[in-house]
Design a protein around this nucleic acid. Sequence first.
DNA 1: TAGTTTAGTTAGCCTTTACTAACTGTATAA
DNA 2: TTATACAGTTAGTAAAGGCTAACTAAACTA
Lengths: 121, 121
Amino acid sequence: MYNKKESTEDYLENILMAQKELGPIRAIELAKYIGFTKASVSVALKKLKEQESITVDQDTGIINLTEKGRALAEKTFERHTILTKSLICLGVNPVIAERDACKVEHLLSEESFEAIKNHIK
Amino acid sequence: MYNKKESTEDYLENILMAQKELGPIRAIELAKYIGFTKASVSVALKKLKEQESITVDQDTGIINLTEKGRALAEKTFERHTILTKSLICLGVNPVIAERDACKVEHLLSEESFEAIKNHIK
DNA sequence: TAGTTTAGTTAGCCTTTACTAACTGTATAA
DNA sequence: TTATACAGTTAGTAAAGGCTAACTAAACTA
């Protein structure tokens, strides 16, 4: 029942965001960034490697998004941004808007997302 | 991690909707209505009974929402309705709007929901 | 050199919530 | 009066995705 997609997208988006904020990151920085244990992150990164969304530098442990991973991360990030903005636009407290956007960003269909995006423009 | 709230609300909302459409229902009708097995529904109803959101008639098996259960069901149903309408309002295909509303209805904060509700008025 | 910290991995557990399979009990039909 | 069908329950399984605990390996530090 629980969708693998959701967790994958969340991790990729968080990798992208963490990189934007912190520069190159390793698993341990990512874990701190998202507030999960390094064990959980380790397992998740293993899956992301398997599905070729990221590579991890052998020597440094630095995480890199592949083209595929970056595309997904950016798509999710865009959704996140637009949804947050939309809610703020409607008068929602930015902190809450942020949190809500994060929760629904994976679930909305492309069609609904585009409709919302067009609407706030 | 996964929130008990979501499943509970879904069941209560579905009970309410099924009752509106079909009149008084038992577990078996509910199972057919939502497309789960009667075993799954049986277990879920047991939990709903424990938390006093429903009662089940000893003789007939008819499910009744308690005051508490009805309040929750109606709150969720209202969210569902408003969110669906909002998306349709933005030009989303009604079938997709319906589906998306169902997915996000549990996740939005009260504040965001109210903001959306006010906006489409 | 010995000890400690740091990063990463693995194993095993827990929860949620669906499933199938197998059971009980009741009601209807031949 | 058997036999079948229907409603409901229980037990056990599976998948996701978090957690803790325990391990390895490498790199400082005394």
